[in-house]
Write a protein that binds this DNA or RNA. Structure first.
Length: 215
DNA sequence: TGCCAGGCCCTCTTTAGGGCCTT
């Protein structure tokens, strides 16, 4: 698969439209099935983090107060990822913050997002939950650190993406996994997935749910 | 004081409702 950047934000809440801002961002570059480069930074957007978010993430108001300004961090991280495709777990969420924080520094992104949540729902349909932590446990992926910290979550989402790529190659016998194929898979309704995979070179008859996970 | 998002997907559906997932 082509090089991609898996990103993750920690934020003050769920909605930039409601005034929520990013508090931490991480991006890991995935190439050849492994992480080859990493970026991580806390960021100071000048807004207060609610107590329940501090408890959830471990990111305190004191930590963010001493962090570099949000605009500076966003310039750095957007330069770091450049124009390569972005991936996030529940990408709709991270894309809102990515676009919102970039807009504040008069930048916009040129690439689209892949979503490891949508891909997991298609390719690991038997997982009891498609939360990132539940998928890490289900697929027996390494725990990269504390959940709800940006770099650890980005690393684990990257491991998940590599696992999904393996699922396509080994179980669905797709000879060449590309970003474009992943785009098509995440847009394809579940019922039409075998047809989608068959068109990618994997025999549709080989589509079996993830019965032999972890190996 | 209390409230605040939004896209995806399933089903007791499609003229809708509600759970999941992100912080």
């Amino acid at each position: 698969m082509e090089v991609v950047a898996v990103i993750d934000f920690e934020t003050t809440g769920l909605s930039p439209a409601q005034g929520d801002r990013a508090t931490e961002v991480a991006a890991v570059i995935v190439e050849g099935g492994r992480v080859v480069d990493r970026y991580q930074s806390l960021m100071n957007a000048g807004v207060r983090i609610p107590a329940y978010i501090e408890a959830l993430t471990g990111i305190s108001n004191t930590m963010v107060r001493n962090a570099p300004p949000a605009g500076e961090v966003m310039r750095d991280v957007s330069d770091f990822v450049g124009g390569i495709p972005l991936v996030a777990h529940n990408a709709a969420f991270d894309a809102k913050f990515w676009d919102g924080e970039l807009a504040r520094i008069q930048r916009s992104r040129s690439q689209d997002f892949l979503c490891s949540l949508l891909l997991s729902r298609r390719l690991l349909p038997l997982a009891p939950s498609h939360k990132l932590g539940a998928l890490v446990e289900y697929a027996k992926l390494p725990v990269a650190g504390r959940y709800h910290r940006a770099l650890a979550d980005a690393e684990m989402a990257a491991s998940l993406l590599v696992r999904l790529e393996e699922e396509l190659r080994l179980r669905h016998r797709v000879p060449q996994v590309s970003v474009d194929l992943l785009r098509r898979i995440q847009r394809t309704p579940k019922a039409q997935l075998p047809k989608c995979l068959a068109s990618a070179g994997g025999p549709s008859s080989s589509h079996r749910p993830d019965a032999n996970r972890g190996g």
